[in-house]
């Protein structure tokens, strides 16, 4: 894939260009936009501190996603608890301004369904089906064998399809 050979001209350049996608992945993990931005910020800070470990020429995006999901695993428990206590998960991503009634009703369905998945299934689903990574790339980001990724993905999808019903 040509992407893996290309690289941003500078580290900061690469980070800046990646911000919209990072927010999307973070929003999927946290299911809450303010918390997604906190996660992005922590990810950026850790990436800057660890930049010596990034090999110029390798894919910056996979490296950033790996950092992000590791922080989410490390810090996720506390914040998940906080979120379940104080935030109504029915509010979803809070992207309310876009779309009418029907659109926002659907947003909430997907959010609610994703919220019911175990973390490992949700991240597999997000990496492959939203972020568009191949199984191999997603497995590298998560740090598991491809077969494991594949089966988490299938379980996550089955659960989502069941939760979302025929409309999926």
């Amino acid at each position: 894939m040509a992407l893996s050979e290309a690289r941003a001209d500078t580290f900061e350049d690469g980070l800046l260009a990646m911000l919209p996608r990072m927010r999307r992945f973070a929003a999927g993990l946290t299911r809450n936009l303010p918390e997604a931005d906190d996660l992005c910020q922590m990810t950026i800070e850790r990436a800057l501190r660890s930049r010596a470990q990034w090999q110029a020429g390798s894919r910056l995006d996979s490296w950033m996603y790996r950092i992000m999901r590791n922080i989410w695993i490390d810090e996720g428990r506390a914040s998940t608890r906080r979120m379940q206590t104080f935030v109504d998960t029915d509010e979803g991503l809070g992207m309310g301004s876009s779309g009418g009634q029907e659109a926002s009703a659907e947003l909430n369905d997907v959010d609610r369904a994703l919220a019911k998945l175990p973390n490992e299934q949700r991240e597999a689903v997000l990496l492959v089906m939203v972020e568009g990574y191949s199984y191999k790339e997603a497995a590298e980001i998560v740090g598991c064998p491809i077969g494991t990724l594949n089966s988490r993905l299938v379980r996550g999808r089955d659960a989502l399809m069941a939760l979302l019903g025929e409309s999926a």
Binding site: P20, C40, I44, D111
Partner: peptide, 18 residues
């Protein structure tokens, strides 16, 4: 479902963090 997040304006604080 997630496309609007990637299309929304990125908060200033993230630019500052970089």
């Amino acid at each position: 479902h997630f496309a609007p997040v990637a299309e929304a304006p990125v908060p200033e604080r993230l630019f500052r963090a970089v």
